[in-house]
Amino acid sequence: MRVLVGVKRVVDYAVKVRVAADKKAVDLANVKMSMNPFCEIAVEEAVRLKEAKKATEIIAVSIGPKAAAETIRTALAMGCDRGIHLTTDARTDQELGPNSVAKLLAKVVEEESPDAIILGKQSIDGDFGCTGAMLAEHLKIPQCTFAATIDFDAKTVERETDTGTEVVSFPSLPAVFTADLRLNEPRYATLPNIMKAKKKKIDTKAADSLGVELNEGNTVLEVFEPPPREAGIFVDDVDGLVDKLKNEAGVL
């Protein structure tokens, strides 16, 4: 089985983001960027498949600016075999939306014909959470989203839902899977593997050379910080509390 994983470069989850002066986007200047945490989980799942001798090759794909090559390098250091970098100057957190990404990935899948495509369930910048589903739709292949476990032998996936998990089966491969938080715990790239990663190949081509129309339809009008939380108050007694919950919060 050959596996293709998507790896997106996003603002590191721990960074406290700032809104840019023009209020059109988050300020990316001098901000620490990392691999999207859900993509890391996707990579880990693929690497475990390879370690279990179920996968023969793992291809890591990233769509993004020049620096996204570093994210691919991280994936290679974790155990992927080679990389594909589709370069674009469009901001991948808001200009290049999920449908454009899905269409680009579909092109790559058509070229590489992997048996499984594993993506993160969402990226933590755009937070759309629909790239995987759109990709499967473009390719007309099965999809199993929000995976908590994937069993390729039994052809089943345990999915996260709002009320617990459910187990679904998928009819055949190729199929698209999206990784949820509990699928696994990603490893650290070891130093020897970081050194080996440098020798692995990354194919680079311009995203706009694939003949895909990249337009999103959505324009970001304004980006703003959530209003600061207001200070709490002390109520005098239980009656006061019940009154507030009923008449102000409207939750009772």
Binding site: Y13, V15, P37
Partner: peptide, 22 residues
């Protein structure tokens, strides 16, 4: 590596170098 970091409450995320001027 990130999954566990990701799950951790914000209080332990204090070290991130949000800005790296150099």
């Amino acid at each position: 590596m990130l999954a566990s970091r990701f799950l951790r409450p914000l209080s332990t995320r204090c070290l991130s170098t949000a800005v790296s001027p150099s």
